[in-house]
């Protein structure tokens, strides 16, 4: 094998190795970095551990929104069957309303309160996130055209 061919071979081998490393990295990171979507019932039934990040979706329970001394907000997310208290230090989205749908990202703290890092409400009046619709349907809380 002459030098030119050998260099070519190394080059091709390097490409294959790079591709392999890339594929492994993608799969590995994917396994570590997905966020599951749970309804309040899922949270209770699946015994989600404190500190594990996930997304919670449901309706904001009526008359549950309470502002703390600083910029923190407390409310309760419910799917009709179960409910989970949520604490959030931030600005709620403009379409956040009691009795309406909400999706929050965060993790449970040891006392069972969901510490949200991000709260999303609907983008407009007509639209609900599909995961939320599915979660509410499972509890029989979803009416078409709602």
């Amino acid at each position: 094998m002459n030098t030119k061919k050998r260099r070519r071979l190394y080059f091709a081998a390097a490409l294959v190795v790079a591709g392999g490393v890339l594929a492994v990295a993608i799969v590995y990171q994917l396994g570590n970095n997905v966020l599951y979507f749970y309804s309040p019932s899922d949270v209770v039934q699946k015994h989600v551990e404190p500190g594990v990040a996930f997304r919670i979706g449901g309706l904001v329970e009526k008359a549950s929104v309470r502002h703390g001394a600083s910029a923190d907000v407390h409310f309760v997310v419910t799917d009709g069957a179960r409910s989970v208290p949520v604490e959030f230090a931030g600005v709620l989205p403009a379409l956040f309303r009691e009795g309406q749908g909400v999706v929050a990202t965060g993790a449970l703290n040891p006392t069972g309160t969901f510490q949200a890092t991000e709260v999303l409400a609907k983008h407009d009046e007509k639209y609900m996130p599909p995961e939320l619709v599915a979660a509410l349907k499972r509890q029989g809380r979803w009416k078409e055209g709602e």
Binding site: A25, I26, Q29, F37, A134
Partner: peptide, 18 residues
């Protein structure tokens, strides 16, 4: 039927180094 989402940490560890 499992609902998940892939957040910024995944992209920070794959897309960014590439």
């Amino acid at each position: 039927g499992q609902k998940i989402s892939v957040g910024p940490p995944y992209y920070a560890l794959t897309f960014a180094p590439i």
